[in-house]
Amino acid sequence: MELEVRHLRALCAIADTGSVHKAARQLGVSQPSLTTQLRRIENFLGAALFSRERTGCRPTPLGRAVLSRARPLVAEMRALVVEAKAAAAGDGGHRLRIGSTASRALAGWLRRLRQRLPGTDISLHVDVSANALLRMVAVGQLDVAFVHEVEGCPLLVPDGLSLRVLVEREPQFVSMARDHPAAAAAVVDLAELAHDRWMVDPTVDGEWDALRRVLCAAGIDPPVLHGDYHTAATLIAVGEAVAPCQPTSLPHDDMAIRPLSGDPLAVRLLLFSRPGPSAELHEAVYADLTDAYREAAMRAAGYRQWLLRHNSPLLETTAPAPLPVA
């Protein structure tokens, strides 16, 4: 066996996510397959690269040494692929490559960008991992990334990226069945959900750690289900679970969205880009994102009321940014 780029990429993914399960999902492979691959790499090198702990995988001293050499190689290979594809396209047209975690603002953002930048090839890459998107910006696979940073769980921001803050603290609401007893109130206390099953997606960077910390601080230890939020929606509708959700989420006939008392769960909404000649374009991109987010916020009645109660600056309208100079 010889170490290949795909092996190094797997090691970096495990280190970045802190979990073989999360890394496998990020790489698009099965967890058993990645576990087997890691075992073969460690057998080849003759020692463990990660220590398996209850909270996840941590690099050993040897693992840190290997990663320090692997990361630049993986980054260079990604950059090479991006540049080669761009050269092969050779059409000289304008393009804007956007990355984002899930957001209700995406549709309005893309609509505004297409109106602002006719003739520009605009692509979108959505990922549950904000850290993965930031790495893609750093190596040139994306031009900008709109991500959320879970409070208390800082993102791993590569050197050299520019940052714009869209929302300093966005509260996370809770979704529950429409007939849940707590849904009768405009604001829900965590104690009212102490006996519910909570569902969280462990592949979303920091989300499970933040929820666990908040529940512990509230003195409750409810059963927790791990799964994606598409599955969660089905379970929530029939009363089998509750889950944290974005305040811009729109309720369904069988589901209620409510703010939590004291807003214990929150995220920062951030736009990252690489500095360079496109800085003026990125300002326009940020302005359109701000307007799209405000539009999504105003559509969600519960969030709109929350913003009014907190006298949020999001309620203030701003003039659109000028078109970037070609």
Rank of each mutant, 00 (worst) to 15 (best):
M176S: 10
R178L: 14
F173L: 10
A177T: 05
D179N: 14
E207T: 10
L190A: 09
L163A: 00
W198F: 14
C216M: 06
E170H: 00
R212D: 06
A191L: 12
A217P: 01
V187P: 03
R169F: 05
L211T: 05
M176E: 08
E170P: 10
H180Y: 03
L166G: 04
A194N: 06
M176Y: 01
Q172S: 12
D201F: 01
C153G: 00
L155A: 09
V157Q: 06
S175E: 15
V187F: 03
A177I: 04
P171R: 08
D205W: 04
P154L: 05
V167C: 07
R164F: 00
A185D: 14
P202W: 07
V188D: 09
V224L: 15
S175V: 09
D159C: 11
I220E: 00
Q172K: 12
V157Y: 11
F173N: 11
M199S: 15
F173R: 10
P202E: 08
D196P: 01
R212I: 01
D196A: 14
C153I: 03
A218Q: 09
C216H: 06
D196H: 05
L155K: 13
P158M: 08
M176A: 14
P222L: 02
D196R: 12
S175R: 15
T203W: 06
D189A: 15
V204N: 02
